[in-house]
Write a protein that binds this DNA or RNA. Structure first.
Lengths: 107, 107
DNA sequence: TTTATATATTGCAATATTACGATAATAGAT
DNA sequence: ATCTATTATCGTAATATTGCAATATATAAA
């Protein structure tokens, strides 16, 4: 117990849940919003902006990277993070489609 | 620790995260999809359809109700669940707006 | 080479989530 | 009133998530 029973659901249901789980955290939402409005999206800036410890931010960035929502480009001793725009649009469309199709089928 | 530091985020960020957290589970996604394509959305039907124990389904329904995404109408000894269409649209628009505005701000 | 700076990883504590058996609550059927 | 069916709640076990201190890694600067 404690684990989600993924086996009994479809690949689509599991995939959507995984993506939503990554998004379902205010720190990660704040990180995405901050990255999106910065020219230079340096990790350390994020730490100062958000107000969580550096290891915590690093972990959140890792989770966002796990679904390819952001990309980190190494420049010297720094890492510049930015949003993967194609993936961003794909995920937006996937979620939007879920809302539209589920709504259409309503009784 | 273990708790999200909600205090350091905006009300909007926390609200969006809360909504996404409710959606971020394959069982709840499956429940919503099942409810949306049924005329009679009886709790017991959901239990049989999804394949999780009745208390587990009941708990998931409670979480979906916590953000008013579904409503339960008592009819005799049964409860007929259906999607709150206004809330469904509102939440869909909220998430869509997050994707659109964040994308617009991209560097 | 040593030092300072930036980021990632590890390990751990606290809390949250998922799932279910047992049981309570409620309403219809006998 | 008793039995049965349906749903909700309680209690608990297992696992996941959040957050951070300590530490490792890597690059630039002195």
């Amino acid at each position: 117990m404690g684990t989600t029973k993924s086996q009994i659901f479809t690949a689509q249901q599991n995939e959507l849940a995984t993506i939503l789980k990554v998004l379902a955290n205010p720190a990660r939402i704040a990180i995405l919003q901050h990255i999106s409005c910065q020219k230079d999206c340096i990790c350390n800036d994020i730490v100062e902006e958000i107000g969580l410890a550096q290891p915590t931010i690093s972990q959140h960035l890792k989770e966002l990277k796990s679904i390819d929502l952001i990309e980190g480009e190494i420049s010297g001793k720094r890492v510049c993070y930015c949003i993967n725009q194609k993936k961003w649009q794909d995920i937006g469309a996937l979620i939007n489609n879920f809302f539209k199709t589920t709504y259409i089928n309503c009784c």
